[in-house]
Design a protein around this nucleic acid. Structure first.
Lengths: 133, 133
DNA sequence: AAATCATTTGATAACATATATCATTAAGGA
DNA sequence: TCCTTAATGATATATGTTATCAAATGATTT
């Protein structure tokens, strides 16, 4: 999988596993928390370094936010649903065909070659909505 | 215009003018450069403070990027075309109807209340494309 | 399997964007 | 014009991220 030029180490495997198995777009801090049980010596430095390699090779996507970046391994065009109350981020695959239509239209009509995209919808998720009675 | 609760000062007016009249999504540093001719004493501190007020009132949008944030006053749903070569960011109004369709579909089918959105397309703008002969 | 080479790891330090504090100054309503 | 409240700007602080570099580890060759 990452045998395309990236040296494999146990640390890197652990970091990559967290990224692949997480759907909540973890931050560097969160990755660290999920890895340090198995690698108590693993520092943030190593996570930053590994993530930079993965981002540069296009294997994961970085999503810069207000305070810090979050990361995801889902590279298919999709929408990120970002709850501004609880901070949770979930992928939406609902409108995928419309997303594709959008990208095709831009490709055809704009003088712009799309390499990748980031589409965030900010608002309130169902869990944070005031309950109606 | 901003007489909805925000104290007006010459510095704030100058900053707001830059934001309204710029289409290139300026950073704090860029805003400073464009303002300090008329306000040599105006510091980055004031720009950060003013921008925070405007963002909190929903009058401008913050776009966090890798290194630093950029800002725009266009609050209508649209696509940002971000050139990864020259760094230029331009709004695309081409696919606006498709963007609206997308938002409507999510509103109807997802359990998510959209407040605002950010849609970035990353790639190469026409000026940075290798010329074909 | 051992040795070599290159790269990663992790500790420390450095950077940069952004924020906090606070005295002085200015805005805006009475 | 006075007065209250808030903004400005100087300084210091916080925090996410990157740079440096010796020691350790992974991959490759002999």
């Amino acid at each position: 999988m990452k045998s395309q030029g990236i040296k494999i180490t146990p640390q890197r495997l652990a970091i990559a596993e967290v990224l692949v198995n997480s759907t909540d777009h973890p931050s560097v801090q969160q990755i660290h928390e999920r890895v340090k049980d198995h690698f108590p010596s693993l520092t943030l430095n190593t996570i930053y370094s590994t993530i930079n390699v993965l981002v540069k090779r296009g294997l994961i996507q970085e999503l810069p936010f207000d305070q810090y970046s979050r990361y995801e391994s889902n590279l298919n065009p999709h929408l990120n649903l970002v709850c501004t109350v609880c901070g949770e981020i979930k992928d939406s695959h609902q409108a995928e065909s419309l997303v594709r239509d959008l990208l095709v239209e831009v490709k055809d009509t704009q003088n712009f070659e799309i390499a990748w995209q980031r589409m965030d919808l900010y608002g309130e998720c169902i869990k944070c909505m005031p309950k109606a009675n």
